[in-house]
């Protein structure tokens, strides 16, 4: 084709602006303005903190899951890992274990479960969907067994240790922000992130230039497991309890948020900041705003369903050629 003289400093490599890519920002902005205008409570400091708290644990789960989705797989076990992590922290602290070892145990368990998922996908060449569905059921069963199928309250001591605020923001919100920024850095600016994207884009191609594709595909599950366990910690600190239904269904609402943020279900494309961040924020803001407006909770599900549907549609639109 016509040769265009290029220099390395050329910063004018333009990307064509696509409505499908930016639509989610417009929608988020519009809805934000609408809620601010129609309710007095929405824009209040307390509510914004509440909204961000609601976002925090889902953001952390989704940060890990974005890695998995970019390789073209799905991790259905995150909700159960979140539950197990929350239960473990609360039970261990109740049993007299100091906070830090209890938390480390939970994070280790989450990473381990992720690694087992990864191992099954890597070595046993099992389908990721089925493997993680299996762990989802098994781990939820295990978590409910150790908790006798009951809610476990977070000890006052733990809450006191972790519920302080930094610059007016609860610690765990800052933790979530730090975590998603790190995740985005890893995804976008490190060799490992490049490899994750490469594997999602063209797995056979990646293996033929010497990328250890199985290791990459396995490792993303460990990341996802770790993130889900951290989300468990955030949940128990934030909510003050770990209930049997905690984390239920977060794998699908999370996946929908990730897709809304522009990450492709087909693999090879996506971001955590701004992508996953905006997706999660949009979902949580809808629920928060509609609740303030006093909408029937059943309509909330309807709206959530509609958002997921739109996300799927936009994803397929973008991948149509």
């Amino acid at each position: 084709m016509m040769g265009v003289k290029l220099t390395a400093d050329n910063k004018t490599d333009k990307k064509s602006i696509n409505l499908a890519d930016y639509g989610v920002y417009f929608i988020t902005a519009l809805i934000f303005i609408a809620f601010s205008a129609t309710t007095k409570v929405f824009l209040s400091g307390n509510n914004i903190t509440q909204l961000l708290s609601n976002c925090a644990s889902m953001l952390v789960v989704c940060a890990g899951m974005t890695f998995v989705i970019i390789t073209g797989a799905l991790d259905l076990s995150v909700g159960s890992v979140l539950l197990l992590s929350g239960m473990m922290i609360n039970l261990l602290v109740q049993a007299g274990v100091p906070a830090i070892p209890a938390i480390l145990c939970a994070l280790l368990a989450g990473t381990l479960i992720g690694a087992i998922n990864g191992f099954c996908v890597m070595k046993l060449k099992a389908n990721a969907f089925l493997v993680t569905y299996g762990t989802q059921i098994a781990i939820r069963g295990f978590a409910l067994t150790i908790s006798n199928n009951a809610s476990v309250y977070t000890s006052q001591g733990l809450k006191d240790t972790l519920r302080f605020q930094v610059a007016g923001m609860p610690l765990f919100i800052l933790l979530a922000v730090l975590l998603i920024l790190t995740a985005q850095f890893v995804l976008k600016y490190t060799a490992y992130g490049r490899k994750v994207i490469a594997v999602g884009c063209n797995e056979t191609g990646a293996s033929k230039i010497g990328i250890r594709t199985k290791l990459v595909k396995g490792s993303v599950f460990a990341i996802s497991g770790l993130c889900a366990a951290i989300a468990g910690l955030i949940t128990v600190v934030n909510v003050g309890t770990c209930a049997p239904y905690t984390g239920n269904g977060i794998e699908f609402t999370g996946a929908a948020a990730i897709l809304m943020g522009g990450t492709s279900m087909y693999g090879g494309k996506g971001s955590i900041v701004p992508g996953t961040l905006i997706g999660v924020f949009l979902l949580q803001m809808m629920e928060n705003g509609l609740t303030i407006l006093g909408i029937d909770p059943y309509y909330l599900s309807l709206v959530r369903g509609a958002l997921i549907f739109i996300a799927m549609f936009v994803d397929s639109l973008k991948n149509r050629r």
Binding site: I197, A198, C201, N202, T204, G205, K208, G268
Partner: peptide, 14 residues
């Protein structure tokens, strides 16, 4: 340099 660029040589969308 593999036989089929599109299949296993390039990351077409990157």
């Amino acid at each position: 340099i593999t036989e089929s660029r599109h299949h296993d040589g390039l990351f077409l969308r990157l």
